[in-house]
Amino acid sequence: MNIVYLVFGNNMDHYQQVYFSIYTSSAYKNAEDRIIVVAENPSLFSSLEGNIEIIPINRDVIKEWEGKYNFFWRVKIKALQLIAQKYPLDSILYLDGDTFFYNNMDALRNGMKNGQNFMHIEEGKLFALSSKTEKLMWTQMKGKTYHNTKIDENSAMWNAGLIGISNKHLDCLEVTLGINDAMCADDVPRRLIEQFAFSLGLNEYSALRPAAHIVGHYWGNKKQWNQIIDHFLKECFMKNYSFDQIIEHVKEMNLTQNPIRVRESNTQKKLKMFIDQFFKNKRPVYVNK
């Protein structure tokens, strides 16, 4: 099984998140599993050489992967196709950077060996979802067919923070890409296109199953988790831990004690933005040259 991450751009938080997720996957993987990082800045993973495989990409590749509709998250589908082409006999377990393992992954590995596909968790049938984007998507797409896949009351939206594709069904990536591009061509609201395309494409080959009981996805509490990860990596650096020592440290952590989602007050956010804008630092002082 290939455990795959994708990271590009210059945001150091994203690279640190991937680092931490790699450490947690290393704590639970077995000897036959391979960890692969597709990275725009591969030098940031130099300390992991020998423990992971690094596939470098550049801005030209990213631009090509975005396709003729210049769709940012199409890059994720193309990256997984690259892995499937390189390792056509292996299942793929893709993870967003803001994830962590907290339970044994045998159920995912064995399920994919038996032809099962996974995504992180089902968010609901598209027609019943309540966000503005989802309502717009349903209004525009209901009853339509995208790359031979009809959108109806059974069409479900799954969270794409984890994507598990059986080696028996790697062709579903081409279906996912076709659905994605067809939605772009129809000018569907873009925020959730890639996520919905994966939900439909993978489900065409195998009724999707959730993986939230094995992997946590803290998309709803990144601020706190970034602080936790930053402190963790600093400690590992300052104490000069070896890779094996870091993995043992991860195994001792209780990752379930920190929330993966919190609901922030909109009033608090607006007040903070107002105060930050109104009260700015004045008279900065610099050292003399």
Rank of each mutant, 00 (worst) to 15 (best):
K63E: 07
G220N: 12
I22H: 01
K168T: 14
Q227R: 10
L162Q: 03
S155M: 12
K86S: 06
R34Q: 14
Y218N: 06
S130R: 13
N70L: 05
K280W: 07
G220Y: 15
E49N: 14
N11F: 12
H169F: 08
R190C: 07
V61H: 09
I35F: 14
K280Y: 06
I55K: 08
L82K: 01
G164Q: 05
I77F: 11
A160K: 01
W73H: 15
E32C: 05
R191L: 14
K222W: 05
S155T: 15
P210E: 11
S166K: 09
V262H: 08
S242E: 07
D230H: 03
S131H: 12
F127W: 10
S166A: 11
P259E: 08
A207T: 09
V38S: 06
N281V: 11
Y23D: 02
N154D: 10
R191K: 15
L271Q: 06
N2C: 13
G164D: 07
S242K: 09
N114M: 11
A84D: 06
Q17A: 10
Q224D: 13
G143K: 05
I179T: 03
F118N: 00
D106H: 14
F198M: 09
K125I: 06
V61E: 08
K113V: 01
D90I: 00
D152I: 12
F237T: 02
A156N: 08
L6D: 04
G216R: 03
D33E: 13
C184P: 02
D230A: 01
K150S: 13
G201A: 09
C172R: 01
R263N: 10
V37L: 10
M253I: 12
H147R: 00
F118Q: 00
Q195T: 04
V215G: 00
S46V: 04
M141N: 07
I3K: 02
L48C: 05
H249S: 07
Q140K: 15
K76H: 07
G9D: 05
S242Y: 07
A27F: 06
E264K: 15
Y205N: 03
T24K: 00
M105C: 00
A156W: 04
G161L: 06
V38E: 02
Q81C: 03
F45S: 00
Q16N: 13
A212E: 15
F279E: 02
A84F: 11
K76Y: 03
L177W: 04
V175P: 00
S265Y: 14
Y28R: 07
G67Q: 04
L129S: 06
I163Y: 03
K282E: 14
Y28N: 03
D181M: 06
D244E: 15
L233A: 00
S47K: 07
E252R: 10
Q16C: 04
R34S: 07
D152T: 11
E248R: 13
F127D: 02
E49H: 14
F196Q: 07
S43V: 05
P284H: 12
Q245I: 07
Y218D: 05
I77Q: 10
S206V: 10
L173D: 11
K223E: 15
D230E: 01
E153K: 13
G216Y: 08
S91N: 14
F274L: 12
I55W: 15
K270N: 09
V61T: 10
R74F: 13
N104I: 09
I36C: 02
M157Q: 11
V188D: 03
W73C: 08
R190N: 12
G178P: 00
K269P: 09
